[in-house]
């Protein structure tokens, strides 16, 4: 098995729901707690496994906002595991999930240096490295119904921009999505071979720009819009 995520850059609206649900689940999960520093102060920050950043792609009038959620890519060539001197970082043979053994980590930061995606963050309270577990404590929990055996971020996404599955199976939902939507890896030139894939924004015509002249009557515009929306 090669478990991982597919994230749709076309539908992600950057609402940060996945960030919140990730933190909520994992702070009491296997690698928890996810310590907050200065939570009610001037500069609140803390450990997070998942971060969403928003970008403006291209320039006016062709510009569009693209939100890019980032968590551990569970790379096939996981340099973070290679550089670890203690053996605390490991990649599971059975499903490819990269984890950190909190009892072995000495907090040298070298694995975070080796990660190009910023997936690893040091927890100053425990002095150990923490990272996305792909909700390993959810996806195998037989107490949960099958539909709920998915990472917290995937379950919570209101636009269904996140998909979880097995990349080794060519017919799994994630493999099909990557194939049909030209899914891509982030920074492929570094050769880490990340398992997680991103679906690029669909090519869509730009929103019409009004030249400032007389507008069509409202009824006509409403009819046009209705014809576009309602599929007969």
């Amino acid at each position: 098995m090669k478990l991982g995520l597919v994230i749709d850059l076309d539908t992600c609206v950057g609402c940060h729901a996945c960030v919140v649900s990730c933190k909520q689940w994992n702070t009491s999960g296997t690698l928890g707690a996810l310590t907050d520093y200065d939570p009610y102060g001037k500069e609140p920050n803390g450990v997070a496994f998942n971060r969403v950043r928003s970008y403006e792609v291209d320039e006016y009038p062709n510009n569009k906002t693209v939100n890019m959620p980032m968590s551990c890519m569970h790379c096939e060539t996981a340099e973070c595991v290679t550089v670890c001197p203690t053996g605390a970082s490991f990649k599971r043979e059975e499903d490819g999930i990269v984890l950190v053994d909190q009892d072995k980590c000495m907090g040298c930061n070298l694995c975070s240096w080796a990660c190009p995606y910023g997936a690893r963050e040091l927890d100053q309270a425990s002095g150990t490295m923490k990272k996305c577990t792909l909700c390993v404590d959810r996806i195998y929990d037989m107490e949960l119904s099958e539909a709920e055996r998915q990472p917290a971020c995937v379950l919570t996404c209101p636009t269904r921009a996140r998909h979880f599955g097995d990349f080794d199976d060519p017919d799994s939902n994630v493999s099909v999505l990557v194939r049909e939507r030209n899914g891509l890896q982030s920074m492929p030139e570094l050769g880490y071979n990340p398992v997680n894939h991103y679906l690029p924004p669909r090519p869509k015509p730009n929103a019409p720009i009004h030249d400032g002249g007389q507008l069509e009557p409202l009824t006509d515009r409403f009819k046009k819009w209705l014809n576009k929306v309602v599929v007969r």
Binding site: P44, N45, V47, Y55, E56, D58, T65, S112
Partner: peptide, 14 residues
């Protein structure tokens, strides 16, 4: 051309 709009953080993280 791509530029960052929001880092999604209100202060500097690790």
């Amino acid at each position: 051309k791509i530029k960052i709009l929001e880092s999604g953080q209100s202060s500097r993280s690790f």
